[in-house]
């Protein structure tokens, strides 16, 4: 499906100035409300969008903002676009294009894919720039059609995974691993060799170095205040190599794995992160929080 097919000229607005993001949202929303049959008063829809907006996370560094809301008793996807004359400030970013989306409480696939397509458009700086400068709704739609921007029918992990991520090599020290976990606030690091996945390390694996096997045979450790091997871990983290402590990769996703496959793997393996592979190369990391942020609360 073409992204342009989901839009109509009357809901694309150009060249107006807005005092702030809320102003831009209200204007775009009232245009949408006028042109489509929405079974809710405008004020209620506005409330829903602004409440979601207050949670944050709808503005992207590429200069696009996607305020949205899921509506009761509504089973459609409506998209309104607004390109302000001068960028509007939102969440510390300068927004050049506002894409407002209204969808049902339950629909996810089409909505997320449309969202994904807009984000992709915003990453293509020449196309994004051309769209922002197109000057009219019909030019905007024509440009989109020419660029053949597609909306995928299903959502796959590549839509929501992180494509830039820290990684380790087998000769790195455990200290470097601990530093990377800390700096990137992550609990998972893939170990790569020429882009291929050869191992994995989690923060728990790091702790595990300081907890030898016998400790797990003890019912509990309540009677201890310190543990010699755990203290030793701190002493030897500069000597230990990642390859000595990493785990062999067992579970992974592929780019076109479905969200439900990912959810199943997270739950059944009790993991928080999964590497996403294309052939043998790691192209992304999917965290269970990506599912929460980009699917359940998208």
């Amino acid at each position: 499906m073409k992204l342009a097919s989901l839009l109509s000229e009357e809901t694309i607005c150009f060249g107006k100035s807005y005092s702030n993001m809320e102003h831009a949202i209200r204007e775009t929303l009232s245009r949408l409300h006028k042109s489509h049959r929405i079974p809710m008063p405008l004020a209620e829809v506005e409330k829903a969008v602004l409440e979601r907006q207050a949670l944050g996370g709808t503005t992207f560094p590429t200069g696009i903002a996607v305020p949205h809301a899921r509506l009761q008793n509504f089973s459609d996807l409506l998209i309104g676009v607004c390109v302000p004359q001068t960028p509007v400030e939102s969440e510390g970013q300068q927004v050049r294009m506002v894409v407002l989306m209204l969808t049902s409480k339950t629909e996810t696939t089409l909505y997320l894919n449309a969202l994904g397509s807009f984000l992709k458009v915003s990453q293509d700086s020449s196309l994004f720039d051309a769209l922002c400068k197109s000057g009219s709704a019909s030019n905007f739609l024509n440009l989109l059609k020419q660029a053949q921007v597609e909306v995928r029918k299903e959502i796959t992990v590549q839509t929501i995974m992180a494509t830039s991520f820290p990684s380790l090599s087998r000769s790195d020290t455990v200290k470097r691993a601990a530093d990377l976990f800390y700096q990137h606030s992550t609990s998972y690091l893939p170990v790569l060799e020429e882009g291929e996945l050869i191992g994995e390390l989690t923060v728990l694996d790091l702790f595990r170095i300081g907890l030898p096997d016998y400790v797990f045979k003890l019912g509990n450790l309540k009677f201890l205040k310190t543990l010699e091997p755990f203290e030793e871990l701190l002493r030897k983290e500069e000597v230990l190599r990642v390859e000595e402590v990493m785990k062999k990769p067992t579970l992974f996703l592929e780019e076109d794995s479905s969200i439900i496959e990912a959810v199943f793997k997270f739950v059944s393996s009790n993991r928080r992160h999964l590497p996403v592979l294309k052939g043998k190369r790691v192209v992304g990391i999917l965290s269970y929080m990506h599912i929460l942020h980009k699917v359940l609360r998208a």
């Binding site: 030898p212 016998y214 400790v215 045979k217 003890l218 201890l224 543990l227 010699e228 091997p229």
Partner: peptide, 16 residues
């Protein structure tokens, strides 16, 4: 042995 050995290893390791 399954009961005693783990706590024994712990004690020995703590004793160095």
């Amino acid at each position: 042995i399954l009961i005693i050995a783990p706590v024994t290893i712990l004690i020995a390791v703590e004793l160095g």
